[in-house]
């Protein structure tokens, strides 16, 4: 197990290093960092100070070294538009994205799994087929378009819910959260649905195929023959068996959820990380863009690492195949 973990950590470090090199190359070698990182009204003295501080007059390798050192120290530059350190800006927006992603994920699991189990137990019924048809549509219709339709129906036509923004927030653990206020929930409803639809479809399909595979196995027939009630059968025999792949994919997909929140946040003007990224790209705020890309990639590498290790803990076969 130890060698497996060491192997995976080494792999993750290599990937993280490759990403940092690509971002550095794109930002400092392909683009002109003076153009990218200094505001347009910078004086010659500012420029000189910047060149010295960032070692821009030194060879590329030295520049890359000082880029890495700043990265490790958490110095990601100053945003042009906000005049704040980029790291503060990102940490400030993180709660909005996190609450959206976590609540959407909870919905996806709470709706998707029961729907999938039901549909997998009775695959030939009309309701099951209708469910599958709906998940196909949920899969094929682009996410941003679903959001626009939600706005058109619930905000413009029915005037039930706000079309955008975050509403009131309350402070908890030193950060602002919308899920603590009623107004916050009203603003969160549509973005959460928008972000959750794709995941609901995915979990429904996963749970359905898992159920169809598991229900014909011998231990299920045996448990049924013993006279175990249907409820218990599903809860203690079916569920644990279909849960393993769902747990893994949920871990991996949490990262995807944060990446996809870029779309949802743009549609609903939700002031999170994704909207920050898109706004910064449009305004040419390179320090923010660079920092976001580096941080989100590192987050992905970490999530992948955790999922791999947890999966190996659950399933010994993976452990051994990776070693052999």
């Amino acid at each position: 197990m130890l060698s497996f973990i060491v192997n995976r950590v080494a792999h993750s470090l290599v990937v993280a290093w490759i990403i940092s090199a690509i971002v550095f190359f794109g930002m400092y070698v392909v683009a002109d960092p003076i153009d990218s990182f200094l505001p347009e009204d910078a004086t010659a003295a500012d420029e000189q100070a910047f060149i010295e501080a960032y070692n821009l007059d030194k060879p590329a390798l030295v520049q890359y070294g000082s880029f890495l050192i700043r990265l490790v120290q958490g110095d990601l530059g100053i945003s042009f538009n906000h005049g704040e350190p980029v790291l503060d800006l990102i940490l400030d927006r993180l709660p909005a994205t996190l609450e959206l992603a976590v609540i959407a994920l909870a919905f996806a699991l709470l709706i998707g799994i029961p729907l999938g189990i039901f549909s997998g137990l009775n695959p030939r019924t009309k309701r099951s087929k209708a469910t599958m048809f709906l998940t196909t549509i949920g899969y094929s219709v682009p996410n941003f378009w679903q959001g626009i339709v939600l706005i058109l129906v619930f905000a413009v036509t029915l005037r039930l819910l706000p079309a955008g923004g975050r509403g009131d927030t309350a402070t908890f653990l030193g950060a602002e959260w919308a899920f603590l206020t009623l107004d916050g929930w009203r603003h969160m409803a549509l973005p959460v649905i928008n972000l959750a639809i794709y995941k609901i479809c995915m979990h429904t399909r996963l749970a359905r195929s898992g159920t169809r595979e598991t229900k014909t196995q011998e231990f299920m027939t045996f448990a049924k023959a013993k006279g175990i009630a249907d409820q218990t059968l599903i809860r203690s025999h079916l569920l644990p068996n279909i849960l393993i792949p769902i747990v893994t994919i949920t871990g991996l997909e949490f990262g995807a959820l944060i990446a996809f929140s870029t779309v949802t946040e743009t549609v609903f003007s939700w002031p999170g990380l994704g909207k920050l990224l898109i706004d910064s790209i449009k305004l040419g705020d390179q320090p923010v863009v660079t920092a976001y890309l580096v941080l989100i990639s590192f987050m992905f590498v970490t999530i992948n690492l955790i999922v791999d290790v947890v999966y190996a803990l659950i399933d010994p076969r993976i452990r051994y195949s990776a070693q052999g």
Binding site: V15, A256, A259, L277, V289
Partner: peptide, 18 residues
């Protein structure tokens, strides 16, 4: 490596750089 990132993130990354 490619498959460990969602496609949309890679695309955003690339287009932000290019």
């Amino acid at each position: 490596v490619k498959m460990s990132f969602p496609g949309i993130l890679l695309a955003l990354m690339l287009l932000a750089l290019m």
